[in-house]
Amino acid sequence: MMKPEPEPVHRVASGQGTREREILDHERSKGLTGDEGGLIRLQSLCAYYGEQKVLDEISLSIARNRVTVFMGPSGCGKTTLLRTINRMNDGVRKFRVTGQVLINGTDVYSSEVDPILLRTRVGMVFQKPNPFPISIYDNVAFGPRIHKLTKTKSELDQVVRESLEKAALWEEVGTRLNKSALELSGGQQQRLCIARALAVKPEVILMDEPASALDPGSAFKVEELMVELKENYTVVLVTHNMQQAARVGNEVAFLYRGELVEFGPAEEVFQNPKNALTEKYIRGTL
């Protein structure tokens, strides 16, 4: 099976930009170290559940302010791959990882990285909306509160408002922040979960099929939101919905049985897949 080398991939990922883009990237990376090509770099990443190898030597680079999509059939390892980035599988019995997950040049699995802090920088949105059964306000305020990110009530109010605005939910819920989050519709709940993740001011947002449990209208809104979010965040999306991957993805990684089959710009992957497996998957004959 063909495996792309990480280097050319990264060049493809961030090299198509204009001068403005470069300046922007440079601005954003100020003060950050080791940010050479891609905010997140996976190097020879393998993951195991006990003896079973579920990710096999994955190497790829995820560029800043882009939507990078992991797609593939069920069981291909895309969710596991996503969850290695914020170490959500830590503590899963017999789960282990080899290789590296570098964010800004720091391996998140190295001993000096605190997974708690990591998760404030790498937020996550799940397949099924999982708002806490408390008020809308308290949901968004949860992260800032536990990490003591704000000093005053008005500061917290501000963070809650901004997060809800960024998640395109403020207009719908701004007047009823004290209502239970469970009273919202599924799509609103999912956007609330996005707002909740944004409230701790992450750099990266991992999304695990965030629209698959929603009705088409709500799914569309969440998709729109992903595109908006990449202005300020780096979005990594797992999906098995190819249309969605094509609509929102800048780069697409196709995984099959734990291996990275193809990785490149979305248009290329969908229009001129280099690998026969990718082509088959796109045609729906895999």
């Binding site: 802090l117 998760r119 404030t120 996550m124 799940f126 806490f132 949860f142 536990i146 979960c193 909740r196």
Partner: peptide, 25 residues
């Protein structure tokens, strides 16, 4: 539901914070 624990963990909540602030409640 475990979703709640996962959601809190993904926000950087420790186990004890999650228990104190959410699950027990």
């Amino acid at each position: 539901p475990d979703d709640i624990r996962e959601g809190a963990r993904a926000l950087g909540s420790t186990k004890s914070t999650t228990i104190n602030r959410l699950t027990l409640r």
